[in-house]
Design a protein around this nucleic acid. Structure first.
Lengths: 217, 217
DNA sequence: TAATTCATACCGGACGACGGTATGTATTTG
DNA sequence: CAAATACATACCGTCGTCCGGTATGAATTA
């Protein structure tokens, strides 16, 4: 393979291929050789020139996955025209309606046999998304009176764990019906914290995503 | 190593060693050779005589871990002298006060770098414990009027996910303070579902367990 | 403009460790 | 005593990683 004048293209190619394979076959069952075979001529040396290990590729892949999502979260978090509760609601809606969700659910990653991926999501959710994106919003909500809780950090974690992990139909292979019921219960729980932020259109949307996943898995 | 007249002892030895290593180093970073080295003379042949794969050992290890716990859950689930809500409360108390928890938290498994273990817990919680142990109790509670919900399956999952995974200080390396606050928020959430089943003594107990973990990790 | 230097993209084989298997042997069991 | 079982040993293919080497291009110098 000829030397690429724009090495970032090579990096992106490797990440594209690795992403697809990790999602389809799982991290542990994807070998470096598998990746090479889908690289169209590039070699093992190329991979280890750009990444220091297989684990390093996984980290880059998940980083790229969440980068866009985090940008969306940050843009809502940093708005100055909304109260805390409004931001939370918008955040749910915007995340669900993000068109890239369609791509992800169409890809239908096999999380059921993907300990590494699930672990990454879990870890990222608790250690990054909750404290850096949800917590500031909740704090704002406390300040402006739209959210009441004595445990903002924990509320951020619990909400995200339920919404990001438990509600994710790809992780626990939920049917449309189950997703609907999970969403309803999540709504009740949020309401009990004074957060009446889920609505019918969101429920329909997540059922739609579930259906996409079930069709393509 | 001489042939053992009681092969179950060999099986248990293998499981003991594997358990300790999986907890300390994580599943993926524990090699078959590591296990052999701690077996006191036994060889690879012995392991592969009793287990068909490394994964198989992990399954046996986790099965043994949850067997006792499940026995406790079943004994409460099957009592006929208690209402649904009372059973739930007793279940929380009994699980926390089980002395084997001290051993586990003293062992201080490194879940932070243990995707397989965390995944196993997550999977077992949702696919086994929730439907087989919690759900029947919730159904009973609905029947006897002590629990109200339209989504018993989902409530069982959500409660257990929060209590078993989120609240587990070993998984997210919580401090005593964080554990206390998580427990308080969990209590609020349960109360919102009409389940005022957490009390001060449980809070103290889980803080005690957290302290044990933090000392030994 | 041509020659030189140097960093970097990439190649491809070697290596050790890994999980797993085939086969042999001693001991127990029925 | 024969079959089944408990283990040992030698070995296999694959894996992730490393590393010496080459090709290419950009910057520097002449």
């Amino acid at each position: 393979m000829a030397r690429n004048k724009h090495p970032e293209e090579t990096v992106n190619l490797i990440l594209d291929v690795a992403f697809r394979l990790f999602m389809k076959k799982g991290y542990e069952r994807t070998s470096i050789q598998d990746i090479i075979d889908h690289l169209g001529g590039l070699s093992k040396g190329a991979i280890y020139h750009h990444f220091k290990s297989k684990e390093d590729i996984l980290i880059a892949v998940t980083d790229r996955m969440t980068a866009d999502s985090n940008k969306l979260l940050a843009s809502i978090r940093d708005r100055t025209d909304l109260g805390g509760k409004e931001k939370l609601k918008l955040l749910f809606a915007a995340s669900l309606n993000d068109p890239v969700q369609n791509d992800l659910f169409t890809a239908a990653p096999d999380f059921n046999n993907n300990p590494r991926l699930v672990f990454s999501i879990l870890h990222e959710t608790i250690k990054d998304t909750a404290p850096n994106y949800i917590l500031p919003i909740i704090r704002q909500g406390i300040a402006d009176g739209s959210i009441q809780t004595d445990y903002p950090e924990q509320l951020a974690e619990l909400i995200l764990l339920a919404a990001n992990v438990w509600m994710n139909p790809m992780i626990f292979d939920s049917t449309e019906e189950e997703t609907f019921r999970k969403f309803a219960l999540l709504g009740q729980m949020l309401k009990s914290f004074g957060l009446d932020i889920l609505d019918e259109s969101m429920s329909e949307r997540i059922q739609e995503l579930t259906a996409i996943y079930q069709r393509n898995k």
